[in-house]
Simulated scan of single mutants.
Amino acid sequence: MNWDIIEGKWSQFKGEAQVKWGKLTNDDLDVIAGKQEKLVGRLQERYGYNKEKAEQAVEEWQSRLD
């Protein structure tokens, strides 16, 4: 799925993101607001991922939304 679609429908996808990454708070999801780079950054903060691992996790999640 194209990230622009995810961003545009973030309110629908943020619940799925929270299921996938339980350490993300509602406040985190509000701040992310569908922005891919913000999601990557929050995964780095909450899970201690390096940037590459966080980007890979986001890409895998994105591909499963198709």
Rank of each mutant, 00 (worst) to 15 (best):
L24A: 02
F13R: 00
V58S: 09
N26E: 08
W21M: 10
I32P: 00
M1Y: 10
K35R: 06
E7S: 15
A57E: 08
A57M: 09
A33Y: 02
R64F: 06
Q12H: 11
Q36V: 00
D27H: 07
D30C: 06
W10L: 12
K14E: 12
I32F: 02
Q62Y: 06
W10H: 13
G8M: 15
D27I: 03
W10P: 14
K14G: 08
K9L: 15
V40I: 10
K38T: 08
R64E: 08
F13C: 04
W10M: 12
E59S: 10
S63F: 08
R46Q: 08
K38A: 07
W21V: 05
A17N: 05
K20T: 06
A17S: 14
K51C: 04
N2L: 10
F13N: 03
Q36T: 03
K9M: 10
G48F: 07
R46E: 07
A33E: 09
Q56L: 15
Q44W: 04
M1D: 10
W61V: 11
A17W: 01
N2K: 13
L39P: 00
L29S: 00
E45C: 04
K53V: 11
S11L: 14
D28I: 02
K35F: 02
A17M: 12
E37I: 01
T25D: 07
Q18Y: 07
L24D: 00
